[in-house]
């Protein structure tokens, strides 16, 4: 620690500016560890267990990138970031990838100098109401009190939606999801609004989930995806295509179980390219031939990751919905590996 303090002091005095020439891939390889920004705790997406091991849907993206780049999915340093610190942590270089259920928006992509490399979860804002209220559509919420997290895009979406539909509401401002649940359960508000995935997780944790309904309206688009810094396109490519590899693997039926077999026997040329049997796609992004194979082996393909963390077999119980492959009516569409 002493040494790092000293380095920091010297550095502050000299103010070396080296941001533009960053080579994140080389940095990560030299460090031997991927710094991955995650949520401080969001059920299903990123959470430390009793032993401090991180699991979750976003965490598996970190693991896949670490496996592709470093060959070991455990070589990840999880940097917990709050809603306020996440983008600064990324742009200041504290983390290499930000996999923290962040919505891809215009201003974040441009003004904040981030690059969203794709979407790993298509979310949207919904409403939950107690069944006894008898409400079946968000349009019937005129005059309702609504619990809403302050300082989030959900707050703005809510205002937009009610204005567009000429409805009125009175907000009950809350600070965190846990507080929102508590207020909602205590009857401080008629409806609770947040991302649909969050609503499902919240409802699943109630003592009486059958007495609460999630209304069918989804009032916003919340494409959540991993982000990297502007200015290092090669690193952006690596993260983007690692994510695409997970999605493509599901499309082509490559799972962590059958992958070794497919490497030997698959006749599908796309799978052969993906797994590095033919062609050397890895070399084009500065990695070796088997990068995608390792990424898929880390925690499985997209479908496996979904099922293990937030899918219908888990307590959260999310259906695939928009997050199904394009072949099954969803929005997941990985560009060809060629």
């Amino acid at each position: 620690m002493k040494k790092s303090v000293f380095l920091g002091t010297v550095a502050a005095a000299t103010m070396v500016a080296g941001m533009g020439m960053a080579d994140t891939l080389a940095d990560v390889k030299a460090r031997g560890e991927l710094n991955c920004g995650v949520n401080t705790g969001l059920v299903g997406f990123a959470a430390p267990d009793a032993n401090g091991n991180w699991t979750g849907f976003d965490v598996d993206v970190c693991k896949a990138v670490a496996a592709a780049v470093l060959g070991d999915s455990s070589k990840v340093k999880y940097v917990p970031t709050t809603g306020q610190t996440r983008f600064t942590a990324l742009s200041s270089g504290e983390v290499d990838v930000l996999a923290r259920n962040s919505t891809w928006t215009f201003s974040r992509d441009t003004d904040l100098k981030l690059d969203f490399v794709g979407v790993n979860y298509y979310d949207g804002q919904g409403f939950m109401v107690p069944k006894e209220l008898g409400v079946t559509s968000a349009k019937e919420l005129d005059g309702a009190t609504i619990c809403i997290q302050t300082g989030t895009t959900t707050e703005l979406n809510l205002a937009d939606y009610f204005k567009a539909n000429n409805l009125s509401y009175s907000p009950v401002n809350i600070d965190s999801n846990a507080e929102g649940e508590q207020q909602y359960m205590a009857g401080a508000c008629d409806a609770y609004t947040t991302d649909a995935s969050g609503l499902a997780a919240t409802r699943a944790a109630f003592a009486d989930p059958e007495n609460h309904v999630i209304l069918p309206e989804i009032i916003s688009k919340e494409p959540l995806g991993p982000a990297v810094r502007h200015g290092d396109s090669n690193w952006g490519d690596i993260v983007r295509w690692t994510l695409n590899a997970l999605i493509a693997a599901e499309e082509y039926g490559v799972t962590s179980k059958n992958i070794e077999e497919l490497v030997k026997s698959s006749q599908n040329p796309e799978v052969q390219r993906l797994l590095g049997v033919t062609d050397d796609l890895g070399a084009m992004i500065g990695l070796d031939k088997e990068w995608a194979k390792r990424a898929i082996l880390a925690s499985g393909n997209y479908g496996e990751i979904f099922a293990a963390n937030i899918g219908e077999q888990t307590p959260i119980g999310l259906a695939r919905g928009l997050n199904a492959q394009w072949t099954q009516g969803g929005l997941l569409y990985a560009p060809p590996f060629r």
Binding site: T40, G41, T202
Partner: peptide
């Protein structure tokens, strides 16, 4: 807690609540 460190009161409790077994 606001700078992403795990204070016992909020961050740690939120982290505990983020596991599916203790949510709620």
């Amino acid at each position: 807690t606001f700078v992403g460190l795990y204070d016992p009161l909020k961050s740690m409790s939120d982290a505990v609540r983020a596991s599916t077994s203790w949510k709620g």
